[in-house]
Nucleic acid binder design. Structure first.
Length: 496
RNA sequence: GGCGUCGUGGCCAAAUUGGUUUAAGGCACCGGGCUUUCACCUCGGAAACUGGGGGUUCGAAUCCCCUCGACGUCACCA
């Protein structure tokens, strides 16, 4: 059996898109599952829109997700080049061959003429297509056009009608009639550059691809490409087409309509865990085998590694995927609190640049992150959640002061806690909490009346992580300072 | 418009590929427990006659026909 070879072939005309990432994931998983090779190829023949910065974003994004490839435009491999602009001549050379075999011909129609033709077809209510007008140009006509200085494009003959069929890895049998392909297709543009459909076929041949998994917006391209494989007398790869990703209104996810929401980088910046994105993206259109449960005891949560073992292209849904931010958030919250604390802490650092991190050791920072991570859905929220920790004192809003700190009971709680500080095992959250509880019992104060004054005095808010962890994180010095401050101006001072 | 693909609770989706499924599970939602609130965790609940209509069959979400809807595609973009 030949080795499985698949690829992701983005065009660097924009940042890494959610859909591209999902397709990359499926290809990657397919390769891993079959112990094959995964290739990253750049389809950059559109020199108008291509940009190096997009190439960087795409590569960085794929790596961030945890994907790696065996061959690619950045690392090379046995079938170079992996960038279409570096093999323009090669495409033209193959096109020449098609020309001499009669599979292709030169077309001298100008963009204006083609536009006029389409306009006319539109007027008549006919479907828009190329009318194959240059198929059998006489030598005289050709010389005349040449003399006019017209630059020809290469067109590939598409005989019609004729059914093109293939057994799609995801959708099952698909049939497309050549009459619906829009007429003879351009394979080399008049500027000498290969079109997408032509370059892809040559590349897939050169790189010996065995499977092509991509979005269903390529179904008609597949028909065209299959014809090209035939003309080139090469074995075509197997194809699989996934449904596209839509929003809740059945609109395709697009930069135009959804802005940054379609870019992987947006999620990285917002503080989503790559593990969550990967898990979510894979799960949107694919379900693990029925009898499988992950180490987590569920078939919802799984890692890339786990997916590599059990991925089966046949279980990719035929239907469209729907982007569901709630579910993504659920995944992210899950990973935020189940990933190793050290990992989350490292990833949290960039979000805490407002604070003076030299103030705390790495161990203290981990403790802090550990205390607040349960309440987060994404890391960008940690700035607000962790604010209470930094600085010796804390700002207590006036209304909180009045409502929570001004009563006699509140002052009693603060005062007693202050004098019990020496009894508190600060390294142990539960122990600290226990001391507070005991104290409450002695004072005959419990519930909110007991906890809220402490919360307010220590963090400026009545909400937040568990009181014990909070005090433990703050440590004796800050706790003492803040309790004192609250006690000294609990009746109205507005400064810290 | 032509051609193509898809259609199971509010959303995603399973159903050993026609047979104990009185249609899994997750998200969201609602309620109980745990908790100082929120959250986390945990337990439970409500929610679909499988787009609609016909067939075939002892039996259909699964097969056939019709119909509706959504989306894709009809470039010298990729």
């Amino acid at each position: 059996m030949t080795e499985v070879r698949v690829r992701i072939a983005p065009s660097p005309t924009g940042n890494l898109h959610l859909g591209t990432a999902r397709t990359a994931l499926y290809n990657y998983l397919f390769a891993k599952k079959h112990k094959g090779k995964f290739v990253l190829r750049l389809e950059d023949t559109d020199n108008e829109r291509s940009d190096e910065k997009y190439t960087k974003d795409i590569i960085d994004g794929l790596k961030w997700l945890g994907l790696s490839w065996d061959e690619g435009c950045d690392i090379g491999g046995p079938y170079p080049p992996y960038r279409q602009t570096e093999k323009i001549d090669h495409y033209e050379h193959i096109a020449d061959k098609l020309l001499t075999n009669g599979f292709a011909y030169l077309c001298y129609a100008t963009p204006e003429e083609l536009a006029a033709m389409k306009e006319e077809q539109k007027q008549k209510g006919k479907s828009i297509r190329y009318d194959n007008r240059s198929r059998d140009l006489s030598d005289e006509a050709r010389s005349k056009y040449e003399a006019e200085g017209r630059l020809p494009s290469f067109r590939f003959r598409i005989d019609e009608p004729q059914d093109v069929r293939w057994d799609d890895e995801i959708k099952g049998p698909i049939t497309v009639n050549t009459s619906d392909l829009g007429g003879d297709m351009v394979i080399i543009k008049s500027n000498g550059v290969a079109t997408y459909n032509f370059a892809v076929v040559i590349d897939d041949i050169d790189m010996q691809m065995t499977h092509v998994l991509r979005g269903e917006d390529h179904i008609h391209n597949t028909a065209k490409q299959l014809l090209l494989f035939e003309a080139l007398n090469c074995k075509a790869p197997h194809y699989g087409h996934t449904g596209l990703i839509f929003d809740s209104n059945d609109r395709k996810l697009s930069k135009r309509e959804h802005g940054e929401l379609v870019h992987i980088d947006f999620y990285r910046i917002e503080g989503y865990m790559p593990e969550a994105i990967v898990n979510y993206l894979i799960k949107t259109s694919w379900t693990p085998p029925n009898d499988w449960t992950s180490a987590n005891g569920t078939d919802e949560i799984f890692s890339l590694i786990e997916a590599e073992q059990i991925f089966d292209i046949k279980r990719v849904s035929k239907a469209h995927a729907r982007f569901d931010m709630d579910k993504l958030n659920w995944y992210n919250a899950h990973y935020l609190r189940s990933l190793p604390l050290s990992t989350v802490t490292e990833r949290a650092r960039p979000y805490l640049t407002d604070f003076d991190l030299s103030e705390c050791s790495n161990a203290e920072l981990e403790k802090l992150v550990g205390a607040v991570r349960d309440g987060l859905t994404k890391l960008s929220e940690i700035k607000a959640a962790a604010r209470f920790f930094f600085g010796n004192l804390v700002d207590v809003p006036l209304d909180v002061k009045e409502q929570v700190l001004s009563s006699d009971d509140a002052r009693k709680v603060l005062g007693e806690t202050l004098s019990s500080l020496s009894k508190m095992p600060f390294e142990d959250p539960k122990g600290v909490k226990h001391v507070v509880d005991t104290l409450g019992k002695e004072l005959g104060i419990k519930g909110k009346n007991l906890y809220w004054p402490l919360r307010a005095a220590l963090s400026g808010s009545t909400q937040g992580p568990d009181l014990g962890s909070m005090m433990s994180v703050l440590g004796p010095n800050k706790v003492q300072a803040r309790l004192k401050a609250a006690l000294s101006n609990g009746n109205g001072g507005s400064h810290v």
